[in-house]
Amino acid sequence: MQYAILCYNDENAVASWTKEEDDACMARLAKVQGDMAAKGKMGPVARLLPTTSATTLRKSATGSMVIDGPFAETKEQFLGFYVVEADTLDEAIAFAKDLAVANPGIGAYELRPVSLFFPHTITAGSGAT
């Protein structure tokens, strides 16, 4: 089963990190990603730009409207995601727990099974750096 692991955090807190703090966190995350990639279970990883760069298409029964900004105003923003192959939900949760250790502090990792998947995108070593 493939799982999308959606990363949420307070983007103002993340944006306040020094380059050294950000680089250290990314290095810890790369280690966790590398372990999953070595098993051939790492899919795409993306780190999103701040919500200030977002554009949203809001839809309704009468049409749609394009607006600047994120979909929702919340304390925690959707900052990025992982796609991993896991034999069980417990395995996916264990990976998310490793991510949480590598990136301590507030936030959340939301796990969702993926129903549409293109197997050619998962290859050993495909994790983000």
Rank of each mutant, 00 (worst) to 15 (best):
I5W: 06
I5T: 01
I5G: 00
L6C: 05
L6Q: 04
L6F: 13
Y8F: 15
Y8T: 01
Y8D: 01
D10P: 03
N12T: 07
N12C: 01
V14Q: 08
A15C: 01
W17R: 14
D22R: 15
D22I: 06
D22N: 13
A24E: 09
C25E: 11
A27N: 09
A27F: 00
K31N: 02
V32F: 04
D35N: 12
M36P: 02
A37P: 00
A37Q: 05
A37G: 13
A37S: 15
K39I: 02
K39V: 05
K39L: 15
K39Q: 15
G40T: 10
K41S: 09
G43K: 07
P44E: 06
V45H: 06
R47N: 10
L48Y: 09
L48Q: 06
L49Q: 12
P50D: 02
T51C: 08
T51R: 08
T52G: 14
T52A: 15
S53F: 05
T55P: 01
L57N: 07
R58H: 14
K59G: 13
S60G: 15
S60M: 07
A61T: 11
A61H: 12
T62R: 14
S64G: 15
M65L: 14
V66G: 08
I67Q: 10
I67W: 09
D68R: 11
D68M: 11
T74Q: 12
Q77F: 09
Q77H: 14
F78C: 05
G80A: 12
V84T: 03
E85G: 09
E85F: 04
D87V: 04
L89W: 01
L89C: 02
E91H: 08
A92M: 07
I93G: 00
A94D: 10
A94L: 05
A94C: 04
F95C: 04
K97V: 09
L99Q: 12
A100G: 09
V101N: 05
N103F: 04
P104V: 04
G105Q: 10
G105H: 11
G105A: 07
G107D: 07
A108I: 00
L111D: 02
R112Y: 03
V114W: 03
V114Q: 07
L116K: 13
L116S: 08
P119T: 02
H120A: 14
H120P: 03
T121L: 08
T121P: 01
T121Q: 09
I122H: 00
G127A: 11
G127F: 03
A128K: 03
